[in-house]
């Protein structure tokens, strides 16, 4: 990771709105387990890249793309191959 990268990327909280369009629940506090290294982290603490084309949320430990989500016109595309599990706490809506 370089200073330039740190200047350009955001944390996963910046993808909260886009993810809420898909899940309809607050996603930034959902705990993820990285399929690459097993590290557990809330979505808000993943590292967000790919700002304008979509959200690429990477593991802060190993850079695996844990969640990939994009909006194309009236569709959303969601790739969770990098997430071993998502843990959603609280009472289902």
């Amino acid at each position: 990771m370089t200073k330039d990268d740190a200047d350009r990327r955001l944390d996963g909280n910046a993808a909260g709105g886009l993810l809420a369009e898909v899940f309809r629940v607050e996603m930034t506090t959902v705990e993820t387990a990285c399929a690459g290294c097993g590290a557990r982290a809330p979505v808000g603490e993943l590292l967000r890249y790919g700002h304008e084309m979509g959200a690429i949320l990477r593991c802060a430990t190993c850079d695996t793309a844990v969640i990939r989500v994009a909006r194309t016109r009236d569709r959303h595309w969601l790739d969770l191959r990098g997430a071993r599990v998502l843990r959603l706490d609280g009472t289902p809506l």
């Binding site: 370089t2 990268d5 890249y49 790919g50 700002h51 084309m53 690429i56 990477r58 793309a65």
Partner: peptide, 10 residues
């Protein structure tokens, strides 16, 4: 503009 899907490899 710079658009990257991940950290810059070196």
């Amino acid at each position: 503009p710079v658009l990257s899907a991940g950290p810059t490899p070196r």
